[in-house]
């Protein structure tokens, strides 16, 4: 079953998020592969799949490399809920997926950004524009091919026609 592919994909995404990108990228450009995968799963299979990836992927990423456990998970879940809200009402418009993913991904990044500001991080407009915004764009672009790869035309799929 193609849905089983989500498990190794999620493990790979967490590995990339926790162990590869923080050591490569500078200036805040760190596209979140786990988030992109959770959004793709939400669009391609069932919202529950996206939620599971968002929850466990976020928790694992936080446990591996972030000081505050739960933040990534909460942000990814918010994105999944937003994307699901869009796709549920626009089942026939799969071409809009990138746009929906862009909004959902921006919401997740905004949540991480606002939480960081709330606990005392410095407002860094340069990092926001040169790092976070490109990350949001990359994440939303990633959602489309990932969703296409995982799409299972079964009953209950978010984009099932």
């Amino acid at each position: 079953m193609k849905r089983l592919l989500l498990i190794p994909a999620a493990i790979l995404a967490v590995f990339l998020d926790a162990f590869v990108l923080p050591f490569l990228a500078g200036g805040g450009f760190r596209p979140l592969f786990t988030l992109a995968l959770a959004l793709a799963a939400t669009a391609a299979t069932k919202v529950q799949d996206g939620m599971v990836i968002a929850f466990f992927g976020g928790i694992l990423t936080d446990l591996f490399c972030n000081p505050y456990v739960g933040l990534s998970s909460a942000a990814y879940l918010v994105a999944v809920v937003i994307l699901y809200g869009f796709v549920r009402k626009n089942r026939q418009k799969s071409g809009l997926l990138i746009l929906f993913a862009l909004v959902a991904s921006a919401a997740a990044e905004a949540m991480i950004f606002l939480f960081s500001l709330a606990i005392g991080a410095r407002f860094d407009g340069y990092r926001l524009l040169s790092g976070t915004l490109p990350s949001v764009v990359v994440e939303s672009i990633l959602v489309f091919p990932l969703a296409a790869a995982f799409r299972i035309r079964e009953k209950g799929s978010s984009f099932h026609k």
Binding site: V47, P67, V69, A74, L77
Partner: peptide, 30 residues
């Protein structure tokens, strides 16, 4: 699923806020 997601989001934000305030959230064990 949406209700479960909302409850999970709220709990996770509370967990992250506790973690940020320096309280022991039990994550050290994991």
């Amino acid at each position: 699923p949406m209700w479960i997601a909302l409850v999970a989001i709220i709990l996770l934000i509370v967990l992250a806020a506790f973690s940020a305030s320096g309280r022991n959230t039990g994550d050290g064990l994991f």
